[in-house]
Every structure is written in C-alpha cells, then in structure tokens.
Design a protein around this nucleic acid. Structure first.
Lengths: 220, 220, 220, 220
DNA sequence: TATGAATGAGTCTTCATTCAT
DNA sequence: CATGAATGAAGACTCATTCAT
C-alpha cells in the first residue's frame, strides 16, 4: 500500500468540538469505495480514504463493515455481482444456436453498465490486470462456468458453420470483446489528453464500441 | 503475500562462515519489480517485496534507487519506454497512406513484446486502469502525440476511402486494438481456470489476436 | 480475521487483565517534549522518545500532532510564544525614556520564566546555538522587531546621556543580558559537578543574575 | 537524529565510474565536522554529511575514525581540548591574588578563540545546553577542577576586599562571563536579521564583549 | 449508534557500520 | 589505501483494527 499522494487523508484529527454527527449509509460507503477504487486502484485505497470521501471517521467504516475484507466482500456482492449476473444472463437460454446474438447481447449489457457506472471500466481493468486482484478473486466464483463453456462450444460450431471468423480462438473471444468494450472507457482520460478536441461523449463511445464488436465477430 | 521461496541457499561456497552477503544488480531489481507489479499491481508492491524477491534487504533497494519514485522512474525508463518507442516506431514514416499497415505493424510489435515480456500485459492494464497510474503518468510523456494525431487523420481518410470500417471512431481505434491484444494475455489465468483444457499457448494466442485485429480493421 | 467480533468480550469487567490502554493529553506530550528537548536537544529527540516518556506508542504522537513539524509548531506556539510575548511585553509602552528599566523588566521576566520552567534555559541555548535551530526559526517571527529597534535607539540615547555604559554595543546588549541570565541555569549541572557544595538554589541563582544584570548596565 | 532538510546528502550513490579518488586528510574531516556541528548541531550531523562536505564517501569517515564515537573523541581532543587548556592556562599561576586579572585573561583568551574559530561559539552553546551534550561530556574531564576551585575562593576573597561586586555568586561568575562572551557570537545571525544595518564586525563584537566583561566584574 | 483515542504491524527512508575487493 | 555494496536497527509516518465511552 503506497502513500498515493493524491489525497493525504489529512487529519482524521481529534478535537473539532462542535462537529455535527455525520451519518452515512452503507450505500454511501460502497459508492465512495468504487469511486476511489476506480480512481486510485483497490490496493491504493485505504479505509481512511473512503471514510474521508464520505465525511466520517475511519472508525465508522469499521462500524459498518467490521474490516477491510468484508468491505471488499460487500463491494463485490452489492456492486459487482449484480453486474456479473446481468452480463451472463443471455447465457441462460435453452438454445445456444446463435452465439453471435448472445455475444452481442452480452456486449450490449456490458456497454450499458459501463456507460451508466463510470467506475466500472477502470476498476475492472485495473483489478483484472493483477492476476490476484482483490476483487477479481471474489467475483470469479460468480461466473457461471458451465454456461460459459456451452457458449464456447456454440462459438466453435458457429465458426464451423462460417458464421464467425474461424481464426479466432473460441475461448478467447469473450475476453477480447470485453477488452474492446472496456478499454476505451478505461483510457478515456489518456485519450482526451491526446486528442483534446475529439468527441468522447457516451454516445460516440457507444457507437464505436458497437461497431468494433460487430466487426470482431464478423465472419471472413 | 507469498513467502518468496527464492531458496535462501544458506551459505554458499564451502567454508565462508558468516553472512554470505547476497549481491544484486540494478537489472535484477528492475526485473523483480516488473514481475511483482504484474502479479500484484504497482501500488500493492512494496520495496520490501522487491528486495525479498531479489534476496537482499530493503535498504539495498534504496542504495540503488534512492527512493520509490526513482525506482518507478527507472522501471519506466528502462523497461517501458523502450517498448513505447518500439510500439510507435511505425508512426515515424513519411507517408501515412496506409494506416491499416501501420496499425498492423503496431499490433505486431505489441504482440511481440507482450509474448516476450509476460509482465507487460497485466502491468499495463492494471496501471492504465487507474486514471492516475503511477507508471502511466511517467510513460505518457513519451507517447509521440504529434504522430498519433497524424495517424488518426490518416485513419479518417482511410475510412472515407472505404478501407476501414467507417463506424469506428478514429481516435479510439488504437486503444481498442490495444485492448484486443492485451486483454487475452492479462486474463490468461482466469481463462485457464475457466477452460482448463483449451490451448493457450503463445502461438494460439498470437493467432487469435492477429485474427481479431484483422477483423477489427476490416472495412464493411 | 474470520469470526465477527460480536462474540468477543470473554473477560472484560472484573480483573481487566489486558492492555490497560494508557491515555495521554496533548498537554502531556508538549511537556514531555520540552523536557526531552532540554535534556537531549531538539534534534536528538525522536517522536518515539516523547511517546515513551508519556507512556504510549509513537503512533499516538502522530495521532495528536500529525507529524514532527506540527509537533514543533505546537511546542513553539503553546510553550515558547507565550514566553516570548511576556518577555517583550515591557517594550509595549509609550515612552522608552528609561531603557534601563525596560531591560531590567525584561531580565526579571526572563528570570521568572527560567526559574519556573526548568526546561527553558537549556532548550533555548541549545537551539539558539544552531543557527538553524528548529525552534528558533519558528520563534523568531514572533519577536517584535519594530519595538526591539526602538529599544536599541533608546539605549543609544541613554548611552549618550551617560545612563548606560557607552562602550557596549546597543544592538548586542539584549543578547548579552540573555546570556547572563540563561547560562547559569543552562550549565547548572556542570557547575554542580564542579562545585558540589556551593549553593545553587533558585534564590541564589536569582540573586546572582540580578546583580550581574545590574552590573552589566551600570554606566561607567 | 532528524532529517535536517538542509542537505539531503543525496546519493553517495554507486556507479560514477571515472571518479578521481578523492583523498582527504584527518584534519579536513575534523574541520568539516566542527563546521557542520556549529551549523546544525552535533546530534543532527551524520557521518554522511561530513563525508559529503569533504567530498568522499562515508566509508572513508569510518576508515579514518572507526566509528562515530571516535570521531567525536577526535573532535574533542584535537579541536576542543587545546582551547580548553588555553582557556584555563591563566589559572596555572602561583598567586591568585588578582582574580579580576585572571578572569580578564580568560575572557581575552575565550574572545580570541571565538573570533578566530567561528564554529566555536555556536557549537559550545548548543552542546552545553543539552546537559548530556555529546561533546560536553568529553570536554568536562579536561577542566582543571582544582584550579577552578581556587579561583572561586580567590573571587570570594576579592569580593570581601571590595574588588568584585559582592552580590555575584563566586561559583557562577565564570559561567556568566562565558555567556557574556559567547552569546553575541552564537546569535549573530539572529541579530543581523533583526538589525540589518548595525555593525557586527569582529572588532565591534570584541569591543562590546570587553566592555561587558569589564562591567560585570566591576565592584559596586 | 458513533467516535475519539489507542495500538501493533508495516512502509519508506536514513544511519552507522562492515567487509570483500 | 579506498570504496562500492551490503546490512540491521532505528526514525517518521500510515494503516487496519480495537475498544471504552
């Protein structure tokens, strides 16, 4: 854990006599957490940072979550798992005849969430990057391995049929698609500083991503 | 944190009773650093981790690099900047008539490096994810903004000519491509645990990525 | 930790075997600080020393003062500045006709404080000695330069009138007086070890110092 | 020991291949030591500071002095003890009939040294201030206690005779005199910043101090 | 319910010291 | 002779956590 000079978390300090007791809800903590996680990374975000963001003492964070582990559990369960479930919802269908449609549905869902939750893309990428991402580890068990495997099989079939580019690796297509969707959102700041005048509105991003995903899956 | 079992090798030679001072070169520190950065993330990696990985005291890290900042500078300059330069080398050409060729050259270069340097993809993604990545900040200034802009213009021209899918955003194509290349490598462990039997050899990955990039750029 | 702390409290009330957390007030820290500063010097006194003197961990020092700088600020503002103000109070008068009276009032004040606050003389001298004394730097801004200059002018006038020894340098008289008052108190231990039987009671010291100051200012 | 930000001692660092082997004499180290001691205080001066001042590595300091203790011993023996002996030389006389003459001789000697050795006054005061000054402890044994006691007795006799102000404490007169001489020199920087235009040349200081000492000893 | 005060462990950094070359 | 490379201990400061109130 490094002293990310960003916000010194100065003075939880004592005294301050007439301080009105700030009350904070569980939800506020989680929101602050994901916001900071996406800005600074999970590892670099201390409980004091989160407390400060919410405007309470770090003791309050412990009061609500007992410890860091459980805070991460909560972030995972209440912020990420719903998204993971939504993302894989298209897999829960009888017939996997049309994997392209399924992948596109997943891409749509991903895109939807990423646009709506600005913290999602940066947090996801920075965490998935470290093999041992603190959140990644907690989320993985919620991925429906069985269905994912069926999708892979369906993709292979589609490739044999000529509906999907056969040079792609069935097992990797999903991750490539994720990269295609997430990276533009995660690197927005860099892009903006490189191209200050370009249009990076959500709509522009969405159009680009949709086109990119379409292209990716297109057969030869 | 793992007890790096570098296998202390208690005391080497034969007689040599005391200490057997372990020695380490600057290069070793940088290698250890990138290895740990890619595994744990930059922020979560302490100087003591790096020292232990190399088998010396953390005081030695300071002896060689003075402080954390300068270690990161060194990692950036000696590990990342060469890569960044290589990556953008295709941009230093007279005619940008064929942006597809240039993008493909960049993808090749990226792929090359990512395969050869296993730490690159995870480290890059996890750092680029945090808007304020400690390394990202240091690397960005080495990106040739001028050339990148020219490439973007060339891409737009190619789109007008019908050589590149016109629905893509010229400014985002490069980042999407990066995502396409990096993500499979960064999420290898996750993929492997999901599909234990699939072929994730470097060659397989390379084939997939090449096909994906080809597809991405293809005109309608 | 796995088990929720809900189940704890196996032993509290009666015997209270554990820890018995030591508590300390801000004031105690400042007292300990000046005590140690006067014994060991400012630079040689670590925050851990102060903490140990008070009976708490050094983390507590940081809890109350954030960092060393601010601890020194507090020592300065709460321990030294009041004294500096009192010392220069005699300067805030309409007529400076009688600089001897003023100087004597200042000497009295100085003496008063030095007797009452045993840490003052050693700390002052050891810090004023180093041109860049950590405390000196903080205290100097509180010296009313304007009034001091007026006093100097008044001294020169008194010398011209023959009320003060004209061979003295007006600008140095104050410092010489300070030396005259402080040094006996600061070097008490040395004196005692040299003259074990002599009378070094506060009263004896006071008498000596008063006489010395009187003598110093006497006209030829 | 605090990180006196004055001189960060940056980079003893490795490499620097073509460095001409700087050679330094024992004397140079001692000079550098007293210079730094007087500027920063003894406790705040590290061996690396001294090495740096001389332009060699800190290993060289150890090469010449084995360890910090012995360096301090050397500073004491070679820089301070000669002075202490000179200072007390006037005491080694048959008749102590004229203590005023003796004290004046001592003051002259002190003054002489303090003017010639600019480091002496600050270092002395800052060290004598801390009861447990690292140098003070080493110097004290060289003070001829016997003779000092005789002087004290002679002073008392002179007071009885009316040659010295009888209100002064015989045992404290010497220390008061020392304060009178040293303080102006030690606080020169402060004085100069307070009175930028005043004359603080060595001659002016000498005149002032001589007058002050004369005054101090004068009978009623 | 909330929090101010406390702590132990850990991080970054510097220091005095050692030693093989 | 001299020094680059190494170390353990200590210093400043932060962090997650605890607990009495």
């Amino acid at each position: 854990m490094t002293t990310l000079s960003t916000s010194r978390a100065p003075n939880d300090k004592p005294g301050r006599p007439g301080r009105a007791r700030k009350t904070a809800t569980r939800e506020q903590f989680l929101d602050a957490a994901v916001a900071l996680f996406s800005r600074q990374g999970v590892a670099a975000t201390t409980l004091a940072h989160i407390a400060r963001e919410v405007g309470v003492t770090s003791a309050m964070v412990h009061y609500h979550f007992a410890n860091r582990e459980q805070l991460l559990d909560a972030v995972c369960n209440e912020k990420l798992v719903p998204f993971v479930h939504a993302l894989h919802a298209p897999l829960h269908t009888e017939n996997m005849d049309d994997p392209v449609a399924i992948l596109q549905a997943m891409a749509d869902c991903l895109l939807e969430h990423v646009v709506r939750l600005p913290w999602l893309a940066p947090m996801w990428l920075s965490d998935v990057g470290s093999t041992s991402g603190e959140l990644c580890q907690r989320v993985m068990p919620h991925v429906p391995a069985e269905q994912v495997n069926q999708l892979t099989a369906a993709i292979a079939a589609a490739q044999a049929r000529g509906t999907i580019n056969p040079n792609l690796q069935p097992h990797l297509i999903f991750m490539s698609m994720v990269g295609l969707v997430l990276l533009p959102f995660a690197s927005l700041d860099d892009c903006r500083s490189l191209h200050p005048d370009a249009d990076f509105s959500p709509e522009a991003l969405r159009r680009h991503v949709v086109a990119a995903v379409d292209n990716l899956l297109r057969p030869l």
